[in-house]
Design a protein around this nucleic acid. Structure first.
Lengths: 242, 242
DNA sequence: AAGTGGTCTAGACCACTAT
DNA sequence: TAGTGGTCTAGACCACTTC
């Protein structure tokens, strides 16, 4: 039943998560780690790793000496900002069925900001992909991704409407590892407002982000704009080092 | 030299972190886990836990089969949103010496939002503390914290200018465990603008947060406003479950 | 092939909570 | 005092990178 890959830990995590969402634990109390280990036939370390991940994502909480419990409040957060991996997924988490429209798809000389973010020379080229994510016909998110042209493979006929992490894996031979994101409040200018289908001057959020691959190289510079009336971001803040 | 409490893991983490910031590793390469374990006289598990925390906070990155390396880019993030524990600390991380001014400090009947956030009855009382955090005489952050009156201890003469997590520990016998925060772009109204020393209509960020204690009870409802020209928030985004 | 990080085990002892 | 989660150890084997 339980085999390798995904790891034992992830299987245990998924198993417990399923029981949590199905409300199978009496009074929201999760069995002791020792029992879980015996029942599932794995070591307590594996159980603890799985519970640690569930705790980190807010699904459970633990009290030393007392036990482990389901976190009802934490379960209700749909998308946690620090664990977002594609805005397409965010829309799905909010119950939308996202439609992707590619507005721009060109290889251009870098501008200053992108050159600095990706450590490129002044005259270098980047592929600029501007996409609009919509729920049915309502625009929700506008994203601009910039990828160094040197990463592009020669074959064209590429599906620019993929989530950017998939595009990078599929056509650039690189795998995103993490983003560093800066959060900026914006008032949409005429161009953005028109694309997002709101009035000029409407308030929204913007993320300015740099994506790094498994070798810790900056591989994508992204700027995204969100309609605050349709999408709110939440996250869990914890004490550093905990 | 190395003893309990703080944990071995945290001591190892601090030790390695210090060597990182002092640039003591050749080519940004951190020694193999086995060497570290032997050198420091601890098990590899302890080393791995410490490295795991450093990786999580962006100080290092690891490549399976290759090694562990210093993450220069990650080291430059001063405050990571998901690990912020007090806005006083954020100002210090940005090189400011924060001055705290308590604007309001009253016990009042709850409003609807706070009652919902803290699961209080309609007529219940809350202590409302409004504070302005300033760099010298320049306002940077305005926070409003609301704490259920039932948590307050009878003694008065309380230092309302403490960071809220310290206030809760000191005077309410409760310890904050985590916050759930919602990020909202705002245009400051006349009142906020005046308090923050900017023009009405200036753009800024607002966080709407609920703090939970070690028993997973909601103990504080906070609303904070930030001057975007003086403070920018960054965070690291990773794939969920990683 | 050698070396590195990733996963997993089995067990010991400690710190804290409940009763 | 019994039971729970928290920390730490020692060691095995696997997956991947590098040469």
């Amino acid at each position: 039943m339980i085999t390798r890959n995904p790891s034992l830990t992830d299987q245990v995590k998924a198993h417990i998560k399923e029981q949590i969402v199905n409300d199978e634990f009496e009074d929201g109390r999760i069995p002791p780690e020792a029992s879980l280990a015996e029942d599932l036939g794995v070591s307590r370390t594996t159980i603890r790793d799985a519970l640690g991940k569930l705790e980190h994502e807010g699904a459970i909480y633990r009290k030393q000496g007392a036990g482990t419990f389901v976190n009802e409040a934490g379960l209700q957060i749909k998308s946690r900002l620090e664990e977002i991996w594609s805005y397409e997924q965010v829309l799905e988490d909010h119950g939308y069925k996202p439609v992707v429209k590619v507005l721009t798809d060109e290889v251009l000389p870098v501008n200053e900001d992108t050159a600095a973010a990706l450590h490129l020379e002044d005259g270098a080229d980047v592929l600029v992909i501007e996409k609009l994510l919509m729920e049915n016909s309502t625009p929700v998110v506008l994203t601009r991704n910039r990828i160094p042209a040197t990463l592009l493979e020669v074959t064209d006929r590429k599906r620019k409407n993929l989530p950017i992490y998939e595009y990078l894996e599929e056509y650039c031979g690189t795998r995103l590892s993490y983003y560093v994101s800066e959060i900026v409040p914006v008032s949409f200018d005429a161009d953005l407002a028109k694309k997002l289908g709101v009035k000029k001057g409407t308030l929204g959020l913007s993320f300015i982000e740099v994506g790094f691959d498994q070798n810790n190289e900056a591989v994508v510079h992204a700027t995204s704009y969100f309609r605050d009336d349709l999408l709110r971001f939440r996250l869990i803040r914890r004490k550093a080092g905990a």
